[in-house]
Design a protein around this nucleic acid. Structure first.
Lengths: 254, 254
DNA sequence: GGGCAGGGTTCATATATGTGAAATTATATT
DNA sequence: AATATAATTTCACATATATGAACCCTGCCC
């Protein structure tokens, strides 16, 4: 099994739990089966395993499954460590209200920026990107915002490691361009990117230091390139003010 | 693969996430490997899959993994639906303070009562039961408390279905004894059980109606039989008062 | 610079899982 | 009570995964 390939049952466990998180109601085995496109006996094997392990409960009267609180306990501790007292949901909602654009929160994951929260834009033409999406670390606005928190030496080291691992294949950006983006981001704390990996798309992003680790998150506002360019100044001001405000709020809460 | 057997990778996904929930710090692949006793390439395959799917992040500088917020989102919605505004943690902590015994919260899962929260007792001799433990639905105090919320006809139906499914094998209790326990529980809202499936162990339990579904949870206080018998009256009073109080609090919060 | 320790990767093979067709079971309707 | 429909289970076989030995990589220490 080559790198980045995924063990089938691993993916399925998470797909099943994601389905319940999306639907938020008890589901029959057949509903899970049809929705996720699994063969019946495969769906059953996964569901039975999750029940046996206590992650799903089964009501035998109506044959409906539902997650148990053990699913909650797997991850309820993560926000405290990753975010500390920063209320990221409120921050993103405020940015969304102020800009109307797609607002995102991402974190570094190996040589990617992983979108962990996405609030879709209100405009008819809006950036559509899903939670879980992995953008490249090098050559994107979210990546530049993240990298602006590191020294040039650390960025070079990261870039070399990524090259060695073959993680940059298919991505046509060189280190000098990356460092130029980062230098621009350091000037006022915000990174900009237009027409990068997503066509017609622009984004303004800024790092957010949160939580118990020295890893940074990145807040982004993205949408149609022309519209983002027009509003860039306003978006930058909103981004900086909202981040500063919420960091102050989280200091008071800590 | 017979019923109740578990797909290996399914179990491993959850074991890995449980390990992170327990340790609450970044871990290397080898630490996961050693702690969980997996072969190195198997551990790697699971971890790489979780990174690819966005559930773990990997810091390539120190080769340490950590859960992402996607783990949180899988289950952060469950308490609202399952518990509503009942603050179960506070309730259990109060009971724990008042009694010093092992305090548990359980939910029905198929033909079991699954322990979803356990606060271990403060006495040197205390009931030791782990979260995730599946107690039988029939013939236990937690089961009797749960069943007391159903009609006798529904209990009979459930019992028959359990028999048909072979879910009662290894458990020597008949329906009449179960119904007697349930009748006793209905008298004052609390079930008692001594020397049932766990030796030297007694428990007092009560149902807790919470959340958006008509499924009940069960709160229990358990420990050394003799000590639970001695304090039964007090435990019953504490249980009823604390549950009533928290239900009132949750009504005000709703 | 070399050696060592700790970590990860590769690969051939054994074992487990996934699949789909068929059979069985359960429920609802007539 | 019979029938139809929907759901679950079984099973033989195809495919995927797990394993452990061997190898490779990286960083640290002498």
């Amino acid at each position: 099994m080559p790198a980045a390939e995924v063990v089938k049952s691993v993916a399925r466990v998470l797909e099943v739990l994601e389905l319940f998180a999306q639907r938020r109601e008890p589901l029959t085995g057949m509903e899970v089966c049809r929705t996720l496109g699994y063969p019946k006996s495969s769906a059953n094997a996964i569901l039975k395993s999750l029940v046996t392990l206590g992650y799903l409960s089964l009501n035998p009267e109506n044959l409906r499954y539902f997650p148990s609180l053990r699913v909650t306990y797997l991850g309820d501790w993560v926000p405290d460590l990753l975010l500390g007292t920063v209320e990221t949901d409120e921050m993103l909602e405020e940015l969304h209200r102020l800009t109307g654009e797609t607002v995102t929160l991402s974190m570094r994951n190996e040589f990617h920026m992983q979108f962990i929260r996405v609030l879709p834009g209100s405009f008819p033409i809006s950036l559509r990107v899903s939670e879980g999406f992995m953008a490249p670390l090098f050559g994107t606005a979210v990546g530049a915002a993240y990298l602006s928190t590191l020294s040039d030496a650390d960025i070079r080291g990261l870039y070399e490691r990524a090259q060695k691992r073959g993680a940059l294949e298919g991505q046509e950006q060189n280190l000098d361009a990356v460092l130029a983006d980062v230098a621009a981001a350091r000037m006022d704390g915000c990174a900009r990117g237009y027409e990068r990996i997503l066509p017609d798309t622009g984004a303004v992003t800024a790092p957010l230091k949160a939580g118990a680790h020295d890893q940074h998150l990145v807040v982004g506002v993205g949408g149609l390139s022309a519209r983002i360019r027009r509003s860039e100044g306003k978006i930058v001001r909103h981004l900086k003010r909202v981040i500063r405000q919420h960091l102050e709020n989280s200091r008071h809460a800590a």
